[in-house]
C-alpha cells in the first residue's frame, strides 16, 4: 500500500506542477482558467487519496465543496472574459520594465515642461500681467 501511495502522490504532484506551468505560460486568461481547473481536480484526487489511506469519512464533504468551487470558478471567469490587448498576457522582464519606466518619465517631463510654459503665458493673458509684487521666476 505504501508503494501505491507514493506512486499516486508523485503522479498527482507532477500533473499539478505541469498545469501550474501552463497557468504561468498560457497566453490568455482562458488557458489559465483551464489549467487552474485541473489543479482543483488534482486537489480533489489528492484529498480522496488521503481519505482512502486513512479510511476517514469526515473529509468527504470537502470533495463535494471543491468540485463545486472548481466548476463555478471556471464558468465565472469564462462568462466575464474580455478581449485582452496583445502582449498583456505575459510577465514583463526587468529590462522591459526599465525601458517603459524611462519612456514614461520622459513623457511626464515633457508634459510638465509644456504645462509650465503654457501656464506662464496663460497667466499673462488672463490677468494682464499679474500682481506687481509677484515674484516671477
Amino acid at each position: 500500500m505504501t508503494a501505491v501511495v507514493w506512486v499516486c502522490g508523485v503522479l498527482l504532484t507532477v500533473g499539478a506542477v505541469l498545469a501550474v506551468v501552463r497557468a504561468e505560460k498560457g497566453p490568455s486568461m482562458l488557458d489559465r482558467t483551464i489549467a487552474l481547473d485541473i489543479v482543483v481536480t488534482t486537489m480533489i484526487a489528492a484529498v480522496a487519496l488521503y481519505a482512502a489511506i486513512e479510511r476517514r469519512t469526515d473529509v468527504v464533504p470537502v470533495l463535494v465543496v471543491l468540485s463545486l468551487v472548481g466548476f463555478v470558478g471556471s464558468v465565472t471567469i469564462a462568462r466575464f472574459a474580455a478581449v485582452e490587448p496583445e502582449g498583456e498576457g505575459r510577465v514583463r522582464t526587468r529590462e522591459e520594465i526599465a525601458a517603459q519606466e524611462a519612456e514614461r518619465m520622459d513623457a511626464e517631463d515633457e508634459a510638465e515642461g509644456s504645462r509650465r510654459t503654457g501656464r506662464r503665458e496663460g497667466y499673462d493673458e488672463h490677468h494682464g500681467g499679474g500682481a506687481e509684487g509677484e515674484v516671477r521666476g
Partner: peptide, 24 residues
C-alpha cells in the same frame, strides 16, 4: 487509485503540451 492518478497526470501533461486553446 493508480489509474485515476495516471489520468490526472496525463491531463497535466496534455494541458502543457497541446498547441492551442481548444485542444487544451
Amino acid at each position: 487509485l493508480l489509474g485515476g492518478a495516471f489520468l490526472a497526470f496525463a491531463a497535466g501533461v496534455g494541458v502543457l503540451r497541446f498547441p492551442d486553446l481548444l485542444a487544451r
